[in-house]
């Protein structure tokens, strides 16, 4: 969705102490207590409890049930498929993100702003519709349906469809992290590299890439989290064939609908761990870039 998912912030979080010590910005102690208590209660209710529930429910029936749920063949094949889908779709969007950011930030051309809006488009489309569009193009009744059937190629209710839907919903992640950063960095360093005799590739690898590596990693992490966790879009195109076209989130759904709650939460807990890892890495990168932004920044 446009503007959200927190673009990489290079400024670092300012210290709240600055506001608390200033008599003009200090809140009344009671107001402070009420606001803090309310917001933290809300935070606990809506964010902490759902997260905790995943792990508690996963282990409710004991560790052996937990381990069994993760090691049964259908679970393993769901894990494998999720990894494959991410391994294909993330690099695709990575390459796209770099290409798009390069064209948009290093050159001037008409319609640039419109192009940026189009790149953000998948964030404003419901995941269900993201799945639907590929059914309309590649499904049995779709544009290429008859041709695909004649040539015995399966896209919908098969892995290619899942990959396409995933690529669609994770489309903007890398590009949108890179564009603001590269815009701010300008073109002077690349020009300097060229005046010093670097070839286009040398310029990109030695100057551009090191300058964007953290934002790139940030985009990849967010892209990966969404790719592994996508449910709605994938659910439309997958066909839910156990052991074949089930990703982890779809496997969770099936187990849950079969009232195998502990198993469902066991698989869900893996995805929740992935989410926590994503947040940890995200915070680390934000901390790193904030550090770099401030170290000896005295001109």
């Amino acid at each position: 969705m446009a503007g959200a998912s927190g673009t990489l912030d290079l400024r670092g979080r300012s210290a709240s102490a600055r506001f608390e010590e200033n008599p003009a910005t200090r809140d009344n102690p009671w107001a402070r207590r009420i606001i803090l208590a309310t917001s933290l209660a809300f935070f606990a209710l809506f964010l902490v409890m759902p997260l905790a529930a995943v792990f508690v429910e996963a282990l409710r029936r004991g560790l052996s049930v937990y381990v069994a749920a993760l090691t049964e063949p259908d679970a393993l094949s769901a894990i494998k498929l999720t990894l494959i889908v991410a391994a294909v779709s993330v690099p695709m969007n990575l390459v796209f993100g770099i290409a798009a950011a390069w064209a948009i930030t290093k050159f001037d051309f008409k319609g640039k702003q419109f192009l940026i809006t189009l790149i953000d488009l998948p964030f404003s489309v419901s995941p269900v519709i993201a799945g639907l569009v590929f059914v309309l193009v590649f499904g049995a009744q779709g544009w290429f349906g008859p041709w695909l059937r004649e040539n015995d190629i399966k896209v919908i209710f098969a892995v290619p469809g899942i990959v396409l839907a995933t690529v669609f919903v994770t489309f903007p992640f890398v590009a949108r992290e890179l564009i603001p950063l590269m815009q701010a960095q300008g073109t002077e360093e690349e020009e300097a590299a060229l005046t010093l005799g670097a070839t286009g590739w040398q310029m990109f690898r030695r100057v551009t890439l090191p300058n964007i590596k953290w934002a790139l990693l940030y985009g990849v992490i967010l892209c990966n989290a969404r790719a592994m966790g996508e449910f709605g879009a994938v659910s439309v195109v997958s066909g839910h064939i156990r052991g074949l076209t089930n990703t982890m989130p779809l496997h969770v759904e099936i187990l849950y609908n079969e009232y195998q709650f502990a198993a469902a939460f066991a698989v869900a807990s893996l995805l929740a761990l992935l989410a926590l890892l994503t947040l940890a890495l995200k915070s680390y990168i934000e901390w790193r870039t904030a550090q770099q932004g401030t170290v000896g920044d005295t001109p």
């Binding site: 002077e188 360093e189 020009e191 300097a192 590299a193 060229l194 005046t195 005799g197 670097a198 070839t199 030695r206 100057v207 090191p210 300058n211």
Partner: peptide, 16 residues
Amino acid sequence: VRERQVGFVFQHYALF
């Protein structure tokens, strides 16, 4: 520019 062998110093230095 790569082949011209000119030394160019940028206004904002453009250090890597």
